[in-house]
Design a protein around this nucleic acid. Structure first.
Lengths: 150, 150
DNA sequence: GCACACCCTGTAGCTACTATAGGGTCAAGC
DNA sequence: GCTTGACCCTATAGTAGCTACAGGGTGTGC
């Protein structure tokens, strides 16, 4: 099949497929006399593998590793596969925690301006301004030993 | 002060300061006879303002807006400031939800391989392989109407 | 006159694509 | 035989927010 058909079957953009080939994620297919890429059914699965891993937030470098393990299922232990997934879980978890803290900070900042104000009176701008001068701000309370609410 | 001193006072890299200037976030300072940038104390505050907003995850485009409002506190209402923060809160919140779903999927995938296996027997690789062939996988359970556990 | 810390501009790199520009191929229809 | 249109090709630049060079100039102390 041609690249357009592969794209349709996998829901992946044509440009992305060519990009994966350049990046060594998808093996280069045979070419027709006129230089068109000719894919086999196996390519559909390989591309699905990549897209599935991407949907799990994995980096292309990690996927390259996983795809290699998948293509060459040696009798060695699969510790590295597990470690790779564990790392990904840790990364995602720490991103969640960072974003949750961010959300709390943003909500605190947002709480500084409710009723209609002018720009000159906006509690949000005032808070940001004070913070720029080194004053303590609502959004970044001193976290040294003290609980936020308790 | 020179750019290095501004960098020290704000904890911001010299290259980043020049980058902010290029991007129109930080006003271009005066120059010495030999072309060195000469910053005033006001620049410290403006850079702190930018860094503070960045620490809240805001985009440079949004910060450019906020900094403009801050520099020109007109008597117009501050609705746009509030809307900007609200949008940021929404963005962060939806990122959190996406990542939480990702985490659940990764944990489900991880659960397919516990004891020591070989690469050929790895439940994680198997799961990814099956998913590539269109079979239902542990990490992406069908969410159409059915609850995962219940 | 040299070493060294600092400064300058300009450009390339990072991730994972996406979007062009500028061209070739192929089948159908007239 | 010619055109039209869908498809394909390569190469390059753009996205966000920096970071890291290369290749050079400046300023101060010894």
């Amino acid at each position: 099949m041609q690249i357009g058909e592969l794209a349709r079957q996998t829901g992946c953009e044509v440009e992305t497929i060519r990009y994966y080939e350049r990046e060594g994620l998808l093996p280069a297919p045979a070419r027709s006399a006129s230089g068109y890429r000719r894919y086999e059914p196996g390519h559909v699965e390989q591309l699905n593998f990549i897209r599935h891993c991407r949907s799990l937030g994995m980096s292309l470098a990690d996927i390259r590793q996983l795809a290699d393990y998948h293509r060459h299922p040696a009798p060695e232990p699969c510790d590295r596969v597990n470690a790779l997934i564990d790392d990904q879980i840790r990364r995602v978890h720490s991103q969640i925690e960072t974003l949750q803290q961010l959300e709390r900070q943003l909500l605190a900042l947002r709480g500084r301006c409710h009723s209609p104000h002018t720009l000159a009176d906006c509690g949000i701008l005032k808070t940001l301004e004070d913070a720029s001068s080194g004053e303590p701000c609502a959004c970044h309370p001193p976290a040294t030993g003290k609980k936020i609410a308790g």
